[in-house]
């Protein structure tokens, strides 16, 4: 299981990096082509579309590494065990929210199947919408793993205390 989780992490980071390169190339060529009075009209919208996906993948990559900013000056003052409980509580609330994003994100994508992605003819907006539920799915997997890790920590401490 861990293995799959780690492979997933590698893939998402890899995709985010590739999208980032594509964004640079697209936006740069859009600028250059416009200066040469021959604009590539789909380059910027396509870059925005990639941006939506890149952000969600990168967000999970940051979440996995605990790089999402948080405020811990208060929590740090509690004993280890309480800290763990608070963390588990936080993760459960986050998980509930992510499940909401997944379920209703898919629903919204379906509702928006008629909508055109601004600036790209015949390209459904739905494909951008899906970035939210897919990203949330990755985030919820990460959250689950974090919950499991926290419970393992609790167990270990209890054992150490008993022995």
């Amino acid at each position: 299981m861990r293995k799959i989780y780690e492979i997933l992490g590698k893939i998402e980071l890899y995709v985010a990096e590739v999208l980032l390169i594509l964004i640079v190339v697209l936006v740069f060529s859009a600028g250059v082509s416009r200066t040469l009075k021959n604009p590539i009209y789909w380059a910027n919208p396509l870059a925005s579309f990639f941006f939506a996906w890149a952000t969600m993948f990168a967000m999970d990559a940051a979440y996995r590494r605990d790089k999402l900013m948080n405020v811990d000056f208060l929590v740090k003052r509690f004993p280890q065990k309480i800290q763990s409980y608070i963390k588990i509580f936080n993760y459960l609330v986050i998980l509930a929210f992510l499940i909401f994003l997944i379920v209703f994100g898919v629903k919204l994508a379906f509702i928006q199947r008629y909508r055109t992605f601004e600036g790209m003819y015949g390209f459904s907006y739905m494909w951008a919408t899906l970035s939210i539920p897919v990203g949330s799915l990755l985030l919820s997997i990460t959250t689950l793993v974090k919950i499991i890790d926290e419970i393992t920590n609790l167990r270990r401490w209890r054992k150490e205390l008993c022995s």
């Binding site: 925005s48 941006f51 939506a52 969600m56 919204l108």
Partner: peptide, 22 residues
């Protein structure tokens, strides 16, 4: 209830904000 899903998405496809990751 789908609005909280639309709102972050709208920011994510906002071309002006693309300046920041760049």
């Amino acid at each position: 209830i789908t609005t909280p899903i639309q709102l972050p998405l709208t920011q994510n496809i906002n071309f002006a904000l693309l300046a920041i990751p760049l």
